[in-house]
Each structure stands twice: as structure tokens, then as C-alpha cells.
Design a protein around this nucleic acid. Structure first.
Lengths: 342, 342
DNA sequence: CTGAAAGCGCTTACAG
DNA sequence: CTGAAAGCGCTTACAG
């Protein structure tokens, strides 16, 4: 418990022969500091291994040096990837990352948004990953004074990064059509509470658009709600085969749904692409393992990009900087689960 | 940017008709506060929605209200699970969770441990998950004044929770032996840098112990280093089959290694349990999906337990409280990848 | 059991 | 460009 004697701004001031307020300004690269002073301060600080007390900085009017990342759940593959990438960017900029998981529970979200003032006390900004927000929550966030950026959200008054879900779905479906399939099913939909439903809707629109381009119509019997879980995909695929009709190819709204579909096939003694071609969206870590053809989305990049946008805002708070949406590229990854229709 | 007018301890003092120092004591449940005062303060604080400024508390001599969770990487299944569980416990006790990923890079770890004083400034304690520490790092942590607890570590001077790796491996191997297999291979070992190598060694000892109990000896040709990744498992299994000898059953040191083994089999036109029985350790989320028999370890429980131990220490700092190791139960989960030897 | 005072280490106006 | 002073909201001895 050897409390090292803390190096304070006073020490730096003494060593550099300047006042603490000049030191304070120099350290933060504020204007109105001569180059000579700047250099002296930097030297002294380096020599002393000085690091400002974050508590004191905060109290005195400043910032916390921390950013909160808010996720629906920390355990899902997508979020773990995005969080790690964002954490790296934040850490490299000197920010601490406070992880807040909503644990897929609305009560947790409600509590958090009910005390945004408390949050604002502990962090400078928040990074939201696929959190479904109502207009009241958006307004509260705006009023909190927190800097905000997000991933995978929609129509939101701050910087957002994501993919073009409709286009990705259109291309995935197009791949199937290009292989000669025309009797297509879609495992669509999201469970309420999980991720943004907006994503699911856009993907479904892409599916329909692709069919329309080929002058095909959607058979409502072949579009089922599957949520975004393995279990949901399994249930939907089983329902499809047993109570609807076996299509020649299936577009799964996300890879985990596709996994479930694969599982349902196996349980019935069938397999892809032998009995049906299957394509997903995501390029989940396991997709390679399972040979799933999919539209890959850059998950880590989305997290890192959004983190950078947030840091930007934090650094030039107050400057005019209209919020923008950034769409990242998706890419078709062909593997074994799809093949040309015979 | 509507900065809500902050509720301070002054407000609570005014409303309760007491001094700020009595309020401060009451809020922290320190001794020497009358019950009446206690109640009045609690009421006033609740009415005002008061929450102490963490910055001010810290500066004044106190604590940060935050705990750091340090993980080798945030993306691995094991860590994502443990982190989420720990975060829940911490959040419920009012602590913020600062996530620090070492990103599997030693340089990151070195930098972190080189400035533990800086960390100590921002958090009250740290929770280490499977971080391989040298004696210098352990000493530095001890000297930092930070409260510490860990998961999956070994011979460490603070509270630790884990599983009995040797026993789990012994039972996994015993399961294979019980099914009539006696020609066993083990996919062992860990990549340096990842997880604690201690775990791998213990699991290997368990494997050997089980064989010894059945008066069998280990064939060195059938024990290969496979790391802890899917790719490592695949490589090792391929090597085993092509250049060594096909055993009748394989004990994989962890589930991901087993996945790789399964993949190698498939690439060679083989499968489990038809050509070989395979058992793992972990009960990874995908194991169910792939039908892998495994020794399940309670991952979330380990994270939650360790978080509770840490909070305990934080709450009664200074009290005598010798560090202890807590071992949680593992459990055999039989699925499709193992069967009786024919 | 309770309160007045000092101080934690910074930043922010305000003068020079 | 630079410095003296006040103050951020708490906690910690020290008196009562």
C-alpha cells in the first residue's frame, strides 16, 4: 500500500519556474503560451513523470477523460468485436472506456436514461452500439451535454456509422438469383429489444428489391420472422420446411439465423448446399468454420470509426460540426453453403 | 447542452438541516451518526436525487467508484461472458466498469503495468481475467494500493476464482476411458501470451492422471501442442491423423481446439464420433450447436464471483482478510461427439 | 453524535 | 504572454 508521493502541478511549476496556471495551459496546448514556456513545461513534466489528476481536472471544471460504450449485451459476437476496436481507439487517445451493458433488459436501459445527469458526471461522451432508442431518450441524450456517436442506428441527431443494410441484402439476394435460384425464402425479423428493428426492415426491403429487379414476386409463405438468434433461425427453418415449402435457396437476415437454419437442416437429415443454398449477412467468426456464404460487414471498423468520430467531437466541442452518417462497405464472401441451381 | 444544475452535498445538508460533514458520513454509512440523522439524510438525498460527485470524492481523499476489468482480449467468448457477468455485479453495487483490453499484445500490458499509479488514480480496484503476470507485475500491483481479484490465475496474492483444471481434465479423460477408449490423444498447450499457461499444464496433468489410474501410459506421439484456437486445433488434429496415428478418442484442452479438430476431420472426410470420439472443456456457446461433448465450466459465475470478492475488499479495506482461492464446479455435458468404443 | 475549517489538485476568469 | 485568487464538491482530522 505504498502510496507514491504524488507529483502535482505545483512540482512541475516549481521545476519549470512558471506558475501553475501557465503550466496548466501549456499542458493542454491552449493558446497564449510562449514556445519557450511550452518547452520548459513539457520538459519538466516529462522529467517528473507528471500526469494530471483526473479527479482534480474534472472537479475544476473539466472533463472526465472517460467515455461510456453502451451495448445491448456485451456477450454477442458483434458487440464484443466492436467494443474491443472502439476501446483500442479510445485508449490510444488517452480515454478510459466505461462499459455499460443493457443486458438486453429494458429496465436497465430505462434506469440508465433516467439518470443521464449522473452518467454525464462520470464520462465526457457515449458511444451507442445498436441501441434502440425512443424519441424521449434521444432528447434526453441531447440535453445531457454528453457527446454522442453511434453504430448501426438510424435517423439519429449525431454521428453514426453503419452499413447500407438494404443494399447488402439486395446483393446477398442477388447472389442467389445469379446462381439460378428463383424460389427464395427469407428468414427475417428481429426479436423486440434486441438490436434495432430498423436493420431487419432494411434487409427485408433489399430482399424484395432484388426479387423485383428480376421480375419475381415475394411469396409471403416463404418470409418468416426468425429473430436474430441461432434458436430463432432453427425454429423458423423447421417451420419453413415442415409447414410451408422447401425453397431452392434461403436468405438469412444474419449469420446466426443462418446457423440455426443449418442446424434445422441437419436435424432433418438435410444439408446445404445439397438440398438448399443458404446465405447470411455478417461474416460471424463461426461462418468461416461452417462454410457459410455471407455478406461480410466490417464490425471492428465500425466500432473504431465511431470511436474516432466521438473523439473528434470531444476535442473540438462547440465548433460547428453537423452530424453525419457514414456507411461502410460490405463484401460478398462465397463459401460452401451456396451453389448453382441444378 | 442544458447543464442540469448539480445537486450538491450542500443541498442535501440544507434540506436535512444538518451539516455537510454529517451528511457525508451518513451517506457513506460511517459510524457516529444517529439513526435520526441517518434517516433524515437518506430522505433528503433521495428527494433530491443526489449522487456524490465522483471527482470531488476522489480528490478529497476518497475513491473513484470505478473498477477496471483487465482482459487479454475482449473478443474471446470466455472473456465476453465473464466481463458481462462482472459488469452486472459491479453496476448493481454502483461501480463503473472500466474495460481494459490487453489486445493480446505484451506491449500494451507492459505499458499498463508501467503506470499503475496512473490507473490507481482512476479506479479503486482491478479484476484480472486470465492475465499472465510475472513476479514484478504482481509486486507492482501489490504496491499500487489497488484492490485486486482475479479469475483463472494461480499462486497469486489476492482472491482468485477458477475451476480445478486438473480435476476437470481428469474427469473428461475418465469419460472417454469409461466409454471403453484406451488409445487416447490430447490436443494440449496454449499459445504464449494467450491465457495462462498454468491452465494448460494442469489440464495435461489431469489427462495423465486419468490414464495412470487405468494403468495406461501416455503415448508422447499422441500429445500435441494445439494452442487454444480453432486454427491451432485444426492444425494439430491434421498433424495427428496424417503424421502420427489415429487414436480412438481425443481430449481437446478446450472447446475451440475441439472445433478445430472437428474441422480437420471434416476436411479429411471423417467425423466424430464415427471415426473418433472427441471431448473438450468449456462448454463454449457453439458446442451445443456442434454437438460437442465437453466439461462445462461456469464462466459467468466465475466473473460474478470474483467481482463480488473485489467489492467485498473495497468495502472493508484494511480489515484482515487473507486472500483465498475459490474453485467452482465443472460438469460433464454429454452430446454427440463421443460414444462407446466398438 | 455533530459541526467549522482546511485542503485534495486542478481550471477559470480576471488582472496585469 | 503570464500570474494571483477563487472555487469546483467532497473528506478528513480536530474540536466540541
Amino acid at each position: 500500500m505504498a502510496k507514491a508521493p504524488r507529483v502535482t502541478i505545483q512540482d512541475v511549476a516549481a521545476l519549470s519556474g512558471l506558475s501553475i496556471c501557465t503550466v496548466s495551459r501549456a499542458l493542454r496546448h491552449l493558446p497564449n503560451v510562449s514556445e519557450k514556456a511550452q518547452v520548459k513545461v513539457a520538459d519538466a513534466a516529462a522529467k517528473l513523470g507528471y500526469r494530471a489528476s483526473s479527479a482534480a481536472s474534472r472537479l475544476a471544471g473539466g472533463t472526465t477523460g472517460a467515455v461510456a460504450i453502451i451495448v445491448p449485451t456485451a456477450t454477442a459476437w458483434f458487440f464484443a468485436q466492436a467494443v474491443e476496436a472502439a476501446e483500442e481507439v479510445l485508449a490510444d487517445s488517452g480515454f478510459d472506456t466505461v462499459l455499460i451493458s443493457l443486458r438486453n433488459r429494458h429496465s436497465v436501459q430505462r434506469k440508465l436514461f433516467g439518470d443521464l445527469a449522473g452518467l454525464a458526471q462520470r464520462v465526457d461522451g457515449v458511444l451507442l452500439l445498436n441501441v434502440a432508442l425512443d424519441s424521449g431518450e434521444i432528447a434526453a441524450l441531447e440535453a445531457s451535454g454528453l457527446a454522442v456517436a453511434s453504430v448501426g442506428m438510424h435517423g439519429v441527431p449525431w454521428d453514426n456509422v453503419g452499413i447500407d443494410n438494404e443494399e447488402a441484402a439486395r446483393q446477398a439476394t442477388g447472389h442467389l438469383l445469379g446462381l439460378g435460384h428463383w424460389d427464395l425464402a427469407m428468414l427475417a425479423g428481429r426479436e423486440p429489444g434486441e438490436r434495432s428493428v430498423v436493420t431487419a426492415d432494411a434487409r427485408r426491403r433489399g430482399f424484395e428489391a432484388a426479387l423485383a429487379e428480376h421480375e419475381l414476386t415475394v411469396d409471403p409463405d416463404l418470409v418468416l420472422d426468425a429473430g436474430s438468434s441461432i434458436e430463432g433461425g432453427r425454429r423458423a427453418m423447421t417451420e419453413l420446411i415442415e409447414n410451408r415449402r422447401m425453397p431452392s435457396a434461403v436468405f438469412a437476415g444474419c449469420d446466426e439465423t443462418a446457423f440455426g437454419a443449418l442446424m434445422a437442416l441437419r436435424d432433418l437429415g438435410l444439408s446445404a448446399p445439397k438440398n438448399v443454398s443458404i446465405i447470411g449477412i455478417d461474416d460471424h467468426q463461426m461462418s468461416w468454420f461452417l462454410g457459410l456464404t455471407t455478406m461480410a460487414q466490417p464490425v471492428a471498423d465500425q466500432g473504431a470509426f465511431a470511436a474516432n468520430l466521438l473523439i473528434d467531437r470531444l476535442h473540438r466541442a462547440g465548433l460547428p460540426n453537423p452530424p453525419a452518417t457514414h456507411l461502410l462497405e460490405t463484401k460478398l464472401v462465397e463459401r460452401r453453403s451456396t451453389r448453382r441451381r441444378r
